[in-house]
């Protein structure tokens, strides 16, 4: 699936680079082109070496933008760097990102996400905010148009959609698949008329919204409830947006199951994902197993990496026994 058309490899540069402090910006700009092309993460940790992840492994980076083996030769991030970075990613307005900081990440223009770590400030036993933020993980997101091409025939029939659950371990292309499924269902394609779709994007990962506007291709008939808790979002969508399909990620809490069932009763199709490496794995989790044993989902797709990230390993029917896929496809 991942071999399909990719966006320009350097598209990420502008929105990401403009949030980096001067030093680090020029270092990243000076990276060798192949590394920059496949850059996955930039790790900024105060008083520690600047690191990047590209092509599945991590590297130290020197002051001149060379990749080095030894941590001693690498650029050491200063307090001024992290301070400046925090101001730049929040557009000098940390006060406007209370909620995001509480959740530990800020989404940049272009859908790239910056995860943050520091000292948690508690209030009544819950995290109120973070202070002394000093570690940043800038994750460069790339959308893969066409990632869902091979999955569509298992999800749809006669211009209808099956209730589908996507199971996958982390980093196996779950969100990428959901995003492209949304685009295809919403835009429509040969033999399939587009349907009204709502994405309930609790963690701003599917649509990568910046100030509420999707930065990813999620389809023309798609509305996005950005940063909205899944259970509330599903109910809001049912009441107000008259969707035919609701797409959401990582269901797992009891209230999510209630909301999913509510949507099913309203005649709305649900496409959701969950963390699990296999069906047996999913059946050990209380909420998932209750949804699965009630045969709520008509299709269960399991992702893995036997043929590379994003491989469809198995597709089950609603009885959870029928295998619709003979061999893994990618």
């Amino acid at each position: 699936m991942l071999t399909a058309q990719k966006g320009t490899s350097f598209e990420w540069q502008k929105p990401v680079l403009e949030t980096l402090p001067g030093h680090i910006r020029s270092i990243i700009e000076g990276l060798p082109e192949p590394i920059r092309k496949d850059l996955e993460e930039i790790r900024v940790r105060e008083n520690r070496p600047l690191m990047i992840c590209s092509r599945g492994r991590d590297y130290f980076v020197s002051r001149e933008g060379r990749l080095v083996q030894n941590a001693d030769d690498s650029y050491i991030v200063t307090h001024d760097d992290t301070n400046c970075l925090l101001q730049l990613i929040s557009d000098y307005s940390i006060y406007a990102f209370d909620e995001e900081i509480r959740n530990g990440y800020i989404t940049l223009r272009g859908g790239h996400r910056v995860g943050m770590a520091g000292k948690a400030v508690l209030e009544n036993g819950r995290v109120k905010t973070l202070k002394y933020i000093n570690s940043f993980n800038i994750r460069i997101s790339r959308e893969i148009i066409g990632a869902a091409d091979k999955a569509m025939k298992y999800i749809t029939y006669d211009n209808q959609v099956f209730h589908t659950l996507v199971l996958s371990p982390p980093q196996m292309g779950k969100t990428t698949l959901l995003r492209d499924v949304s685009r295809k269902l919403s835009d429509g394609y040969l033999g399939f008329r587009g349907l009204k779709t709502v994405i309930v994007d609790e963690r701003s990962e599917i649509a990568g919204c910046f100030r509420g506007v999707p930065q990813r291709q999620v389809g023309v008939r798609t509305d996005v409830l950005d940063g909205c808790p899944k259970a509330d979002g599903i109910m809001m969508a049912i009441r107000s947006m008259s969707p035919r399909v609701i797409i959401t990620d990582e269901i797992g809490r009891p209230e999510d199951a209630v909301a999913v069932e509510e949507a099913l009763n309203a005649g709305i199709k649900i496409i959701a994902s969950a963390h699990a490496s296999s069906l047996t794995d999913a059946l050990t989790r209380p909420v998932l197993s209750s949804l699965l044993t009630k045969k709520t989902f008509e299709r269960v797709i399991v992702l893995g990496d036997s043929l590379g990230v994003g491989t469809m390993e198995k597709v089950y029917g609603s009885d959870l026994c029928t295998q619709l896929l003979e061999n893994p496809v990618r």
């Binding site: 101001q87 307005s93 940390i94 006060y95």
Partner: peptide, 9 residues
């Protein structure tokens, strides 16, 4: 300026 959270500002 711009540094702390809403109430702090």
């Amino acid at each position: 300026l711009g540094g702390s959270y809403g109430q702090g500002q």
